[in-house]
Structure formats: C-alpha cells, structure tokens
Design a protein around this nucleic acid. Structure first.
Length: 422
DNA sequence: TCTGGGGTCCTAGGACCC
DNA sequence: TCTGGGGTCCTAGGACCC
C-alpha cells in the first residue's frame, strides 16, 4: 500500500520575511506581487484581519496602516534560497523526495516503519535548522495527502502532522471539505459541480465515473480516483525538463511607444535566454505576447501574441532578441496603452545531443556564439545579474520598469545585504 | 493612480498526407 | 442527390496548479 506525505511551508513568503525580523513575531505580515500590485502571501495574523489572497494592495492600504501590517515587496532570491535549504533537509531525512513547488514537497514513505514519527522529526528539524514552520499530511494518494495537509494546518491540535487513514476518518474529512478545495478542482469546475448539487469532496467521489470522465476529462477522473484511495500519480524524483520557459512582466506604468515595448521585450528575452542556458537547453521558437490592462473597461483593449520560429535550435541571446522583436512587430498595434509583455521560449531541447539542422550555422560560428554566451553568463554569475547587459535594455527611467518600493534585503544571496548582528 | 509570474496538461478542430 | 478512412502534427483555448 503506497503512502505519501505532503510537506507544505506555512505562509511561506511571510515566514521568510519574518525569519530575519524577529520583532515581527505576532504582527501581521503580507508580501506583495511584482509592482507591489496584490497580496500573494499572508501571515496568520494578516489572514485573521480578513485580507484575502490576491487582494489589490491599494484597496488595503488603510487597513495596512491601521493594523500595523508589515508590508513587503516580493524577494524571490531570498525565498528560493530558503526553499533549497528546506529541500536539502528533507532529502537528508526521507527516502524519496519530489520537490513540487517552492514551498511544497511530496515524500514517498511507503514501507517506512513509523511514518508519523518521521514526519514529526522532519517538522522539528526544518523548524530548528531553517526556521520555517511546515505542516505535513499523510495519506495513500497525493490528492488525499493534500487534504490531510489542510487538516494539519487548520487544526493546531494535531501538532502540524495529520495522518489520513482510509475508512471512516477519510470519509469524515471528505464530507466536510468543499469540493472546490480539492487539489485539481478549480473555480470553473467547482461552480459547475455546485450547480449540480455536488458540494463536498464526498459528493464528488460518489458521482458516476462516466460523468466525471466526460465532463472533466481524464484529469478529473484521476482526481476522483485519488480521492477514493486509488493512487494515480506516482512520485517523480527527477524534475522533468521544461517544455517552455517564460519571462513576463506587468509594467510600472502603461506603455504606448513601440520603442519602449521593444526595450521591455528585449530585456525579457535576455532574461529568458539566461534561464534557457541555465537549464542546458535550446529553443526552437520564440513567442511574444502583449496586452492592455484587464481591469479597466474604459480603455480600448488589445492583446496580441505572435510566434517566430528560429532557423535552428539555439540559446544565443542576440538571435532570441531578434526573433522576439520580429514577433513583437507582428502583434503590436499602435494607439493602445499596453500594460504587460512576455517572451516565451518553446520547443525546448537539450543542448547536448541536438538534432542537426540543414539551416545550422557552421560549427565554428556556433562555437563562437556558445563561447560568448558562456563568458557572459560567467561574469553575471560572478558579479551579479545585469553586470554585462545589452544596450537596448539599459535605458534609465522607463515606464515599463517595475515598481518595488518595499523589498527586504537579500539577506542570504547578496554580500551587500547580509543581516548585521550586534 | 494602483489587480503577479510561471508553468502543465487536455481537447477540439484544421491542415495535411496517403 | 450521392464525396472514405485513418493517421499525424500543430494551434488555440480552457482548465488547473503554486
């Protein structure tokens, strides 16, 4: 019988911010998205104030001030670093770990003699060594482990670890879980299910399989089976290579000028090409998307998207910038106020063992491009991202530049920003 | 004034081929 | 009047996740 554990950090980003600011203990903390746009993480005190996930920050400024909420811009280098410390700790203690997201990991504890004791030990050690509280749910399937984790979080009586055994206990939990809170059932399906009188996870499990298959595809069927204790999703230890990579940003202010859009798209192309090389991959095509604001009906709307195929798979930044700018020309319409742009790389293949194309450059030229990119990456790794830049991306004071007024120091990843003691 | 960023998978429909 | 069957590949759109 398989046994999965889901380890999930409590209020992860908020907990990270508090780690280096002990005076914030007991105070409400929120972390904002890029551009300080909306709330993407809340401490339990902030949740208690009724601040919802995704709340636009400007609507809550008064409450922030009134209740003394500590507000942070997002600081992903910090969260990423703390995340990898946690994952390393898990790898040391559990037989088999799948890193599922920045703040979650599945463990396969099949055959472990006392899985609950192990989970308590893990929780203890992560808290002591890294300083981040986690909750752990145990069950026969990943979907049920997710559910068990919710119980561990919501009911402090269990001490952060909840074991969801089959039978009565599982059914009791399913009966009090809103179907929309099940992993894999999003707002759309949830609404349709409610309309049919399916309110709880237990109602959902009892639906005819054929209906679920027809209306919710095999994905929905898999969720239903997992809720009934049949494991459909195994643990995947090695992360699958990416099929696409994206860099997209909302601008600090609206952008109308083609030249500014070209700068923004170029700088996102640079960034996404860096990610591509860090994966040891090459891309076959480049897609650009641009859009006007979603939430303002009084402005003319446009969203465009275009894809340009590269002559051959490459990770060469100038080639990718060039393709991205051509894609931009295809989808740009003058006269609109754009709010967001993104560059996506598609058709990723490993750089080693690549398909040879008739359109390939001669090997010598490829070698030169590769050497240049490696040198560039090495300098930027050593001296910080953006030390060596492309001219088109460097203009100061552009409307597309991000606003980030409240970022905390990069305590653990930047020498200039180490915490001071004493 | 002010609403994130980065992914995956499934399905249907069209193009194209034999 | 009446226009096959089967396969592949690609794309767009929808749905979900954190």
């Amino acid at each position: 019988m398989p046994l999965f554990a889901l380890v999930d950090c409590n209020n992860f980003y908020a907990s990270c911010e508090r780690l280096f600011r002990p005076e914030l203990k007991g105070r409400p903390v929120v972390v904002l998205s890029n551009n300080d746009g909306c709330v993407i993480a809340r401490s339990s005190e902030a949740k208690a104030l009724g601040i919802p996930m995704g709340a636009p920050a400007f609507q809550w400024e008064r409450e922030f001030r009134k209740s003394g909420v500590a507000v942070f811009s997002s600081n992903f280098p910090l969260y990423g670093d703390l995340s990898s410390r946690i994952m390393t700790t898990l790898e040391d203690m559990a037989p088999s770990v799948e890193v599922y997201s920045i703040d979650e990991a599945f463990l396969d504890l099949t055959g472990v003699a006392d899985p609950e004791a192990l989970c308590r030990a893990i929780r203890e050690r992560v808290l002591r060594w890294v300083g981040i509280p986690v909750s752990i749910g145990l069950a026969r399937t990943k979907t049920l482990a997710k559910l068990a984790n919710r119980v561990a979080k919501k009911q402090p009586g269990y001490g952060g670890v909840f074991n969801l055994e089959q039978g009565q206990a599982a059914e009791a939990v399913l009966a009090v879980t809103d179907v929309g809170d099940v992993w894999g059932i999003g707002p759309r399906h949830s609404k349709r299910l409610w309309a049919r009188g399916v309110r709880t996870a237990l109602d959902f499990v009892r639906l005819p399989r054929t209906w679920v298959r027809r209306e919710m595809s095999v994905v929905g069927l898999c969720t239903q089976l997992e809720l009934s204790g049949v494991s459909c999703q195994s643990l995947s230890r090695a992360p699958a290579p990416h099929k696409s990579l994206l860099c997209s940003r909302t601008f600090g202010r609206l952008v109308t000028e083609r030249a500014h859009l070209r700068e923004a798209v170029s700088s996102y192309a640079v960034r996404v090409a860096e990610k591509l090389r860090a994966e040891g991959a090459e891309a076959m095509s480049v897609q650009v998307c641009i859009s006007t604001p979603r939430h303002r009906d009084n402005l003319p709307q446009h969203s465009g998207q275009a894809t340009v195929a590269l002559p051959a798979a490459t990770a060469h930044t100038p080639s990718i910038i060039d393709a991205a700018l051509r894609a931009l020309e295809d989808c740009f319409r003058p006269g609109y106020e754009y709010q967001k742009a993104g560059v996506m790389l598609l058709g990723l293949t490993p750089a080693s063992g690549r398909q040879v194309s008739l359109l390939d450059l001669d090997p010598e030229q490829r070698q030169r491009q590769h050497g240049l990119m490696s040198a560039l990456d090495a300098v930027n790794r050593r001296f910080g991202r953006g030390t060596l830049r492309y001219a088109i991306t460097t203009a100061p004071d552009r409307p597309w530049h991000m606003r980030q007024m409240r970022r905390s120091p990069r305590y653990t990843t930047s020498w200039d920003e180490l915490p001071r003691v004493g």
